[in-house]
Amino acid sequence: MQAYFVKKLLMLPLILLGVSFIVFVSIRALPGDPARLMAGPEATQQAVDDMRVRLGLEQPLPIQYAGFLMDAVRGDFGTSIRSQKPVSEELASRFGATMSLAAVAYFFATLIGVPAGMAAAVWKGRAPDQIVMIVAILGASVANFWLALIMMDYFAVQKGWLPLLGMGGPAHYVLPSITLGLLPMALVARMTRSSMIETLEQDYIRTARAKGLGAFRVYRRHALRNAMIPIVTIIGLNFGGVVGSTVVTETIFNWPGIGRLLVDAVRFRDYPIIQGVTLLAVVSVVVVNFLADLLISVLDPRVRFG
């Protein structure tokens, strides 16, 4: 098993290399000339050419890529074309906002998803099970931007219960984290349910119950450990989806994270920012996946990789 993780760890730089290449090439392939964009609609051709030199865009692509790689290793992703601040600085100030939102979203997803999934397993085939499964599958079937806007209109505008936009106190987290957490919540509930059903059918549980241990104690003793596995699995598998969803969620809620940064950067063809955000998003997904694998193997010694 150790060998498996060493192998995976060694793969990380290879994957990142592939990712960086794709990102670099695709960004150069984007239509739209950043030099003209920065110079402005009324700029002369001369001004546009000067801008291109200023941005280092006139060098051959391989040299640009080599320079990009060297800089990236040092954590230097260049300077934002638009804000003229270092990309690393822009990312640093935004990454925390995205991660805290994702963390809260997962927290809610777990807080509701696990008990719901357990209830569904315990009352398998009966009303609680059916309700949980219907809600879970609905949660995975709604377009998040649409739900977000409808929730905003109802809870923030009409009822005035929650703040509408931006990042602030705990109340600011409620609507964005529901938007972001709905899908993981649905997945956690389903995973918890199926793993609990499997556990409940194990011989040792039957024995424990036959020995007269209370149902509640049995569930608590065995369920907690078993609940951890689906949560970690979902976080690992779904993290990319959540990071992707922040693009939409942050745009709607004016959340100052990397998702909104990416949308703005694409709109203004801010190459260094697009590169930086994409790489950061991918690195965090790869790392979270790796850690999730590691954790599962610790939690569940039955799992073998190879």
């Binding site: 992707g244 693009v247 997904v285």
Partner: peptide
């Protein structure tokens, strides 16, 4: 599998934004 891991590492929407921005 390396190629697949690279592709899989991209959050879906982020990759889609890149691709659609390029292709139109």
């Amino acid at each position: 599998m390396w190629l697949m891991d690279v592709l899989f590492a991209f959050p879906g929407i982020v990759l889609a934004i890149l691709i659609v921005s390029i292709l139109g």
